[in-house]
Structures are given as C-alpha cells and as structure tokens.
Simulated scan of single mutants.
Amino acid sequence: MQRRSTQGVVFVHACPKALCQHVEWALERVIGAPVSLSWADQPAAHGSYRAEVAWTGAPGTGAKLVAALRAWPMLRFEVTEEASYGNDGERMSYVPGHGVFRAPTSANGDLVVSEQQLRNLAAHATSIEAFRHGVDELLGAAWDADLEVYRHAGDGSPVTWLHQVV
C-alpha cells in the first residue's frame, strides 16, 4: 500500500527572537525530523524575525503545524497545504487578536467559497453592505489586511524543505 503525502509551506511572518528556537522545536515535533530555519529580520515589525520552510508529509500535517505554532499567541504565520488525493488544499493564517482563519484552496491557490456559504450569506445579509462584509469574512480579509505588509517583507527569501519522517 502506498502512503499518501502532500506538501505545503510554513510562513512565520513575525516571531520574537526569544521564540525562534522554540518555533523550530515545535515544527520538529510535527515533522519528526530536525529543523533549522534561516531567520531574517522582519522590517515590518521591529525586533521580530521571519522564516519560511516548505514541508512534505501526510495529509493533515498543515493543521498539525498550525496547532503547534498557536502555542505562542504573539506569532503571525500562515501554513499552506496542497491538495492531495481525497483532500482539498488549504490555507491557514494566524494573527494575534483574530485567531486562526482556515479556508480550502483551489489548484492555483485561490480561496474557495462554497455554494452553500454564498446561499447562506445571500439569505441572511440585510443590505448590500452586509453582503460585502460577509464576503470579506468568507475570504479572511481581516487576516489578509494584517499580514500583507509582512508578506511583502519576505519577498525573495530563501525556502528550506522539510520532509516528514514516515
């Protein structure tokens, strides 16, 4: 029997220096292999560092990585998981004060909003403004607004690969 696997990326957008090693240890516990990230200054948040790492593992590993990183509520991070046989792709984002946003993604990385979500929103929105607000909620606009400046600060950064031990 062939073991299914997928891949994704962990983007740690802002991490205090004192937590960098702890973040690596948390990733190691999930992946089951040593992790050494290339940390860089995060110009969008003085005193913070950023890193990104690509990973491979079993479907559901992305959610486990998010659960491990949520131990530190001051982090800003995103985790992606590509679609695999029987599983949709996902993007999960964490922002202090907002918590976790989780949504399925298409093959090109766009967030997917279901027919039922749209029908429910259309049935309950009391105005066009309420409908627009509901669409923003479905797309995680609050998380994107917060993270966008951190994402741009990481453009062109090197990526390391992690492979889950099987």
Rank of each mutant, 00 (worst) to 15 (best):
M1E: 10
R3W: 10
Q7T: 12
Q7K: 11
G8N: 07
G8D: 08
V10K: 01
V10L: 10
V10Y: 04
V12N: 05
H13W: 12
H13P: 00
A14H: 03
A14F: 09
A14K: 01
P16H: 07
K17H: 09
L19F: 08
Q21W: 02
V23E: 06
E24M: 04
A26E: 05
L27K: 05
L27W: 03
E28C: 11
I31K: 02
I31W: 00
S36C: 10
L37R: 02
D41C: 09
D41A: 15
Q42G: 14
P43N: 06
P43T: 12
P43Y: 05
P43Q: 08
H46C: 14
Y49E: 07
R50F: 04
A51T: 00
A51F: 05
E52W: 01
E52S: 07
A54T: 01
A54P: 00
W55R: 14
W55S: 09
T56Q: 13
P59G: 08
G60H: 02
T61S: 08
G62F: 01
G62S: 00
A68G: 02
L69N: 02
L69W: 07
R70K: 04
A71T: 03
P73H: 10
L75K: 02
E78F: 01
E78R: 02
E82D: 13
S84H: 01
N87D: 14
N87P: 08
G89H: 14
G89T: 05
E90H: 09
E90N: 03
R91S: 10
M92A: 14
S93T: 10
Y94S: 08
V95Y: 04
P96R: 03
P96H: 09
H98W: 14
H98D: 12
H98N: 11
V100Q: 01
V100F: 00
F101K: 01
R102I: 05
P104L: 13
S106D: 12
A107V: 12
L111K: 14
V112T: 04
V113I: 11
S114H: 10
E115Q: 12
L118G: 13
L118T: 11
R119M: 13
N120W: 09
N120G: 10
A122T: 04
A123F: 10
A125I: 04
T126E: 08
S127V: 10
I128P: 10
E129D: 15
H133E: 13
H133V: 07
H133W: 08
H133L: 07
G134W: 07
V135Q: 05
E137K: 11
E137D: 15
E137H: 09
L138R: 01
L139Y: 10
D146R: 11
D146M: 08
V149N: 00
V149P: 05
H152L: 15
H152D: 12
D155E: 13
G156L: 08
S157E: 14
P158I: 08
P158E: 14
P158D: 14
T160L: 02
W161R: 11
L162F: 08
L162I: 03
Q164R: 03
